[in-house]
């Protein structure tokens, strides 16, 4: 295993991406599906922490799922743009100028991940028979490979086409398939380090992905995965629900580290002020009836905690 640093070129690199939701309308993807989003405008930049708050059913989780590419929703209007900057994937990864803006709604979920989008699920799936280590190493390698393909395929380089053909040949049970991969030993080190930072027991590494995990362990695991995949933009869907105070602290430390060390931009969906005491947002948005009704600084979250959402609703109607 060579493990040359270039395979992990984004490690420790400051991100410079920007996610932009423009006039996003969406409905449930079925005959006569209910409209849920009615024109969402939102921008999250790398290095920023945004809190997205709002009552149940206002469209917060739907927004998160659409960013990730959930097939249950259909976008009827608007766009979700991801703007990248030179150096976003490390100094030696060239991002040509004509490939710096992507409408991610055109992309598959794994392609979005390759460009640096991450969704922490409100209810993470339990995957029996697939160990954390195996999954995360596979995901990290798949992400790097997919990213290479997204930036190479139109340049007509001979070797790019060949690599694509071999893309699916890599079985997770086999060792490193090509020299661009993060090998088993190298990955173990990364995983161990990240788990220690999150105060996670080493035994999780060999357990099946989320299988039999407590609610809190699952949430911790979502933050761990974000830490390993190093996204430019992380959407965290109620990462704070079901956490006791100690674990809340661990998770909050993990989120702050994402921002502080890698410069990840965080869109944090939450019902509660509680986690915002530990992860201080730069911006707070209130969502009502499928739109961003009000945006402000951290003080807005405190006002919501004190007064609920009704005053925002009244304010919006008055303005209208």
């Amino acid at each position: 295993m060579t493990g040359t640093p270039h395979t992990l070129h984004d490690r420790g690199n400051r991100k410079m991406a920007r996610l932009q939701l423009n006039n996003l309308h969406a409905e449930v993807a079925e005959e006569g599906g209910e409209q849920i989003l009615r024109g969402v405008d939102l921008e999250v930049e790398s290095g920023e922490i945004h809190a997205l708050m709002g009552p149940n059913g206002s469209g917060k989780s739907t927004t998160a799922k659409i960013i990730a590419g959930h097939p249950a929703y259909e976008v009827t209007e608007g766009e979700v743009l991801l703007h990248l900057e030179e150096g976003d994937f490390g100094e030696d990864f060239d991002i040509p100028e004509d490939k710096r803006t992507w409408d991610i709604l055109d992309l598959e979920p794994n392609e979005r991940a390759a460009l640096g989008i991450f969704l922490a699920f409100q209810y993470p799936a339990e995957i029996e028979g697939v160990t954390m280590t195996n999954f995360l190493r596979t995901a990290l390698n798949a992400k790097l490979e997919e990213r290479d393909e997204l930036f190479e395929d139109e340049e007509g380089e001979d070797d790019a086409a060949e690599e694509e053909d071999e893309g699916f040949e890599t079985s997770p049970m086999e060792g490193p398939a090509d020299d661009g991969e993060v090998g088993v030993a190298e990955f173990q080190e990364i995983l161990q380090e990240k788990m220690e930072q999150l105060d996670m027991d080493a035994k999780f590494a060999q357990r099946y992905l989320n299988a039999g995990f407590s609610g809190g362990e699952k949430k911790q695991n979502e933050v761990l995965q974000a830490a390993i995949l190093e996204p430019s933009i992380a959407v965290l869907d109620e990462i704070d629900s079901g956490l006791d105070i100690d674990r809340l602290q661990d998770v909050a430390n993990g989120i702050n580290a994402l921002r502080d060390v890698q410069g990840t931009g965080v869109l944090q969906i939450t019902h509660y002020q509680r986690i915002l005491d530990y992860v201080e947002p730069d911006h707070v948005h209130v969502m009502l009836d499928g739109e961003i009704a009000k945006s402000g600084g951290p003080e807005l979250a405190e006002q919501l905690e004190d007064k609920g959402y009704d005053w925002v609703r009244e304010e919006v109607y008055e303005t209208a």
């Binding site: 590419g69 794994n110 990290l140």
Partner: peptide, 17 residues
């Protein structure tokens, strides 16, 4: 979706499952 949202292709995710 959980697996593909982490960067794994649908085909590879299916194989792992």
């Amino acid at each position: 979706l959980y697996m593909t949202s982490r960067g794994v292709s649908p085909r590879l995710a299916r194989n792992m499952l």
